[in-house]
Amino acid sequence: MTLRIDTAQRRARLAVRHGLAGPVPPGKTPEDVAADLVALHATDPATVHLSVAARLHRPLVATVEDALYERRTLLRMLGMRRTMFVVPSGFAAVVQAGATRAVAAEQRRLLVKHLTETGVGDAAWLEDVAESTFEALRRRGSATAAQLAADEPRLRSLMVFPQGNQYVTSRVLFLLAADGRIVRGRPVGTWISSQYAWSCLPDWLPEPMADLDPAHARTELARAWLARFGPGTAADLKWWTGWTMTHTRAALRALEAVAVELDGGETGYVLPTDTAPVDDPGPWVALLPGLDPTVMGFQGRQWYLGPHAPAVFDRTGNAGPTIWSDGRIVGGWAQQPTGRIAWELIEEVPASVRKAVTRAASELEGWLGDARVTPRFRAPLERKLADPAGTVVA
């Protein structure tokens, strides 16, 4: 008989495993939060800090930066779906072999195609420029893209396309990062800045990154995802990792993942050791940032998003800031120019939830202080609330 896991149980699992319900365990760290979520979305640099704060309920910018740039127990790297993540450094080799290596191969093929079509160079030219750039970075120890382009002028080569022109600088640095050779270090500016100084990865980490077998790494990446996001469908895992369905099914087979029936008749999967129910954690509320890993963990989002995608996602599927209550999205929020956290509910909720949202918004507003955070990808509800003339429910 097939095990059934209903929506209420999925929401309970997400709340407990993503650190969204109940008291914060003593001594819990940003590294623990990253492990709880497998990886922190880092395309928008503010998301990393806001995701941690949402779980630990206190501002930890300095602590997160210490983990990223001093102790280096967290690593910012390219990963699943060609997306930037922050991961525990000990898990980076799994992400590199299980996801990033394939991204690098595809992006190298595409860049060589573009270089050839625009008459800039070929594969040998790209390899020579990449090696020269890496050596320039090694000599400097740390450098911005502009500094590296001064050392290696070919980085300023311009690819001319009918739809617009592009310098090769960012594409070459992207490939070096995807190959696991260079890493984004401390931002040039504050914690919300998206401009970084680069360093050579072998000089950045205290120990070399292990070179794992890709199939083994995919299995371990699937194991981590199922442990934190399961049950999820094969389509969810395929979307989150960016794999082919062949690789997705192979990883599920290697794990001997258990098929379970979900509400709506879909088939989900859990680890063989994860079939027991999780206790309901009780009422909870959370204000999660745009691109938060909990929001972006699934392709099929109906069970926690309902009909609200047009309000809290942009047109390309990037989540804006959301309000959660008991495992579902019930509203959105934004920071206004004055620093005020404006919010609006898009579902009917009890008065107790409204009060909890008010407290959470006040807490977030207090610790953001003078910082002003605008999501990189802006959803319609966030745009409206960020405007002081917009509708505000508080």
Score class of each variant (00 low, 15 high):
Arg55Pro: 04
Ala351Pro: 02
Asn318Val: 02
Trp333Ser: 01
Gly268Asn: 06
Leu68Met: 10
Val183Met: 08
Ala356Val: 09
Cys200Ala: 06
Arg223Tyr: 11
Val160Gln: 12
Asp370Thr: 15
Lys238Asn: 05
Val353Pro: 07
Thr118Arg: 12
Glu365Asp: 07
Gly189Met: 14
Glu266Thr: 03
Gly19Val: 05
Leu50Pro: 05
Val270His: 15
Trp333Phe: 07
Glu131Cys: 10
Met84Tyr: 10
Arg156Leu: 11
Asp292Thr: 01
Arg378Trp: 01
Cys200Leu: 05
Trp239Gln: 03
Ala371Pro: 15
Gly265Met: 12
Leu287Met: 00
Ala92Pro: 06
Arg181Pro: 09
Thr244Asp: 11
Trp225Ala: 14
Thr273Ala: 13
Tyr269Asn: 04
Ala62Cys: 08
Pro25Trp: 01
Phe313Lys: 01
Val16Gly: 03
Asp128Asn: 14
Val129Trp: 08
Ala34Val: 15
Gly331Ala: 06
Gln9Gly: 11
Gln195Met: 09
His216Ile: 00
Asp6Val: 14
Ala130Asn: 07
Gln195Trp: 10
Ala177Asp: 10
Gly164Gln: 09
Thr133Met: 03
Glu135Arg: 12
Arg372Cys: 15
Ser325Glu: 09
Arg71Ser: 11
Phe298Met: 04
Phe313Arg: 06
Pro206Ser: 13
Glu135Trp: 13
Gly297Ala: 01
Ala102Ile: 01
Gly98Pro: 01
Thr144Gly: 05
Gly27Pro: 05
Val349Pro: 11
Leu287Asn: 03
Asp36Leu: 15
Pro214Ile: 08
Glu348Met: 08
Ala145His: 02
Glu220Asp: 15
Trp204Met: 02
Gly306Cys: 00
Arg140Pro: 03
Arg328Tyr: 10
Ala210Gln: 01
Pro310His: 07
Ala143Asn: 04
Ala8Glu: 15
Asp370Asn: 14
Pro45Arg: 05
Pro289Val: 03
His308Tyr: 07
Val353Leu: 09
Val103Cys: 11
Ala197Arg: 15
Val270Asn: 14
Leu271His: 01
His49Trp: 12
Glu266Tyr: 04
Gly268His: 04
Thr358Trp: 06
Leu14Asn: 13
Pro187Asp: 04
Ala251Pro: 07
Tyr269Ser: 04
His18Ser: 15
Ala104Gly: 05
Asp370Leu: 11
Gly119Gln: 08
Gly317Trp: 02
Ser193Lys: 00
